[in-house]
Simulated assay, not measured.
Amino acid sequence: MIKPFDLMDVLGRILLDDAPKTPGSEEAIRTAAAALQFIDATGQVADFEDYVRNLEAYAPPLAIARFDTRQDADAWLMAQKRPPLFASILVADEYFSVFFNPTSGWKGLGRQPRLEFYLQEMADQRLTPSGLSFATKTEAEAWMNQQPTPPQQVVIDIAGAPYLAAYHHRIDYRVLYPLPAPTPPSQET
């Protein structure tokens, strides 16, 4: 469990005892401490802990919502009085960024290649297959839907092809992503 006050204590010791010499270090440490105080003061410690666990598990990037169509996502965004300044959502299994300018009131969505980067990283890590193998995608989906709490990410085989069975736990969404071919090793010597 992350304890913001313990982390702030560490940052304070670095600031006072180690006196960072890199330009901007003091401001960076003070800003990090203020971010921890904000997380604590706004009751978001559990969400922050969840975010850190998500990173440590190499789980799919967090999304705050999912929509079947871009029109549904646009309607949701326009209905928000105060949407997040920046967040990720899924639209038909693709990541989009939510943008909001509180000064002008402008709201918008932009497609982001976050999923492609994540899947390529998973392929490049050459994760050990789980041993789970299915003849069809339908069989794999049935397996995922039977899991009370599926793994956040696990490599499975569907008809001889590697897939990432992913669980977006914040929005309770299960999905199968085909993994791309790993990036070939560099030929530079």
Rank of each mutant, 00 (worst) to 15 (best):
P83R: 03
K3L: 14
L179V: 07
T103V: 15
Y58V: 10
K137R: 15
H169K: 11
R126H: 12
I171N: 10
L16M: 05
F67E: 07
R111K: 15
D74N: 10
A33I: 03
E139I: 00
R53F: 08
A63R: 03
S97N: 15
A123M: 07
F48A: 09
F96A: 12
E141Q: 04
A79P: 01
Q147N: 01
P148D: 04
E141S: 03
A63D: 10
A166H: 00
P20N: 13
R174M: 05
P178G: 07
H169V: 12
F5Y: 13
H168E: 14
P148T: 04
R170L: 13
F86V: 06
L85V: 04
K21T: 15
P4K: 05
Q120A: 05
F100T: 01
V98H: 09
F134K: 09
Q125F: 14
E141F: 10
N101S: 06
D17Y: 13
D157Y: 02
L176T: 08
W76D: 00
L16I: 00
A34S: 13
Y118L: 00
A32R: 00
Q187W: 07
L7A: 14
N145S: 01
I158C: 03
R114Y: 14
W76K: 04
R111C: 06
I156K: 01
F100G: 00
P20R: 12
W76Y: 12
Q147T: 07
T22Q: 12
